[in-house]
Amino acid sequence: MADNTPTLVSGEPQRPRAQFVATGFAIAAAAMMVAGALGMYMARRHASGIHPGSEWLNGLKVPNPQFDYALLTLYTSMVTAHWALWASRRRDTAHAWTAIATTIVLGLGFVNMVIYSLNRMELEIGSGEYPNLAFATTGLSLALVVVGLIYLGLMGLRSVGGSVGQHGSTPLGSAVFFWDFVAVAWTVTWYAVYVVK
């Protein structure tokens, strides 16, 4: 009997990359949230009639250069985020911190540019179907960017606190993973709402 009893010994609980996996789940959830909103947007767009030429586009002025620059800024921040992760894995803290700070500055710049672009469009919430849908879908993606920035900032602080190296950088890697997703989510939203309209 004793030989067959499973050993009941204490030990280190195994939680390899739990944060990374949880971030993966969160990304899946956020992706479906954006998909749900964009799905509804597209259904309404389809129901609005012939497109382009649909009524809801009347008077719409999309400042394409501003949106393009915002997108480029976001893509640049992806590069700097990966730079931060690369440096953190090599315990190159000076570069890691510089890259994290650059990423956050670029992220804030992106948010600023998008808000500026929306102001230039002179969309008034509640004035029509497109403005309401555009505000909702853009706001959702922009909220994800802000969440990504906070996540990057917090994990950056952990990195500053010494969480570096191959395994120690997993939290920062998770935040960078989320940031990559945020960039993709914004790109899809921007293409659907401001390019295809």
Binding site: F25, A28, A29, A30, A31, M32, M33, V34, A35, G36, A37, L38, G39, M40, Y41, I125, N132, L133, F135, A136, T137, G139, L140
Partner: peptide, 16 residues
């Protein structure tokens, strides 16, 4: 995780 957020995305539009 992949189905409930669809409602969340739609609720944002409905709310606005």
């Amino acid at each position: 995780v992949v189905s409930l957020p669809v409602l969340l995305g739609q609720l944002v539009i409905l709310y606005i």
